[in-house]
Nucleic acid binder design. Structure first.
Length: 255
DNA sequence: ATGGCATTATGCTAATGA
């Protein structure tokens, strides 16, 4: 099974890119973030014509997540149970024998801000829910825009990003908890990778051309899925297109 | 590098993103 995650930064604007990329990359499951699309406007027909079922949870202007799949998703869950949260950031579903959680973590804006505290609260609610999901579903994939670069090698300039949003110690600890306590595995680091591989580049200052990026989009796998993971790559081809998303898809090959 | 971009909306400036 080919599993992908991509923050499209507006499904409406990116739909042509998405359809081209689906045809090219051929994912069996594709998790999308920042659809910025109300459910009534979700482009269900175009995606069905491309061969995908879709479950989604969106809102106007901000946030919004979706799971596209060749097989029909079942047991659909919206949001983190018990966490009162209006923004549409979480959708989970079972596709074939695999449980897939699609996440759009809060940005956090600035360290110490109210939005930063909300980001940490969101992660505190996320971890115990994922532990329960893992107990129920040994084949669990947790994917999406986690808005955290976990290690120095996931940041183009660690000195410049030290203590900054996406790379502050509390954020990194929150994400590390998913690895150490929930016992998920970062699929990307299961394999030898080129240096300076990132999944997001600022639109400004020609950041992509200079490869000034961060690796903040992730595929985390349960131990069982990690054992059968055959590869994990970042697909930079979409970032080179006209009017690209600022994020690139991450793709994992699973057995 | 400290923003010179992109997207959205009771829109033409402001909020948000990362």
């Amino acid at each position: 099974m080919r599993l992908a995650t991509w923050n499209v930064n507006s499904l409406k604007v990116r739909l042509p890119h998405l359809l081209d990329w689906l045809a090219r990359a051929q994912p069996d499951v594709a998790c999308l973030q920042e659809t910025k699309t109300e459910d009534a406007n979700f482009p269900l027909d175009a995606l069905r014509a491309a061969g995908y079922h879709a479950v989604y949870c969106g809102q106007k202007a901000y946030n919004g997540v979706a799971i596209l799949a060749r097989s029909e998703p079942r047991q659909v869950q919206h949001g983190i149970p018990g966490f009162t949260d209006d923004p549409k950031r979480v959708i989970a579903a079972t596709v074939d024998e695999t449980r897939v959680a699609c996440l759009y973590a809060p940005n956090g804006q600035a360290v110490g801000s109210e939005k930063y505290r909300y980001k940490l609260r969101w992660y505190e609610a996320l971890a115990p829910w994922l532990s329960i999901e893992l107990q129920k579903h040994p084949r669990l994939a947790v994917v999406g825009d986690l808005n955290v670069a976990p290690e120095e090698r996931d940041v183009h300039d660690p000195k410049r990003w030290e203590g900054q949003i996406h790379f502050s110690d509390p954020e990194r600890a929150a994400m590390r908890r998913l690895i150490d306590e929930v016992r998920l595995v970062d699929a990307f680091r299961l394999f030898p990778q080129p240096e300076n591989e990132f999944s997001w580049w600022d639109y400004r200052l020609a950041a992509f051309q200079r490869n000034w990026g961060l690796r903040i989009d992730h595929i985390l796998l349960s131990p069982q899925l990690a054992t059968g993971c055959l590869g994990c790559t970042i697909d930079k081809s979409t970032r080179r297109l006209e009017r690209p998303s600022d994020h690139a898809p991450v793709i994992a090959e699973l057995r």
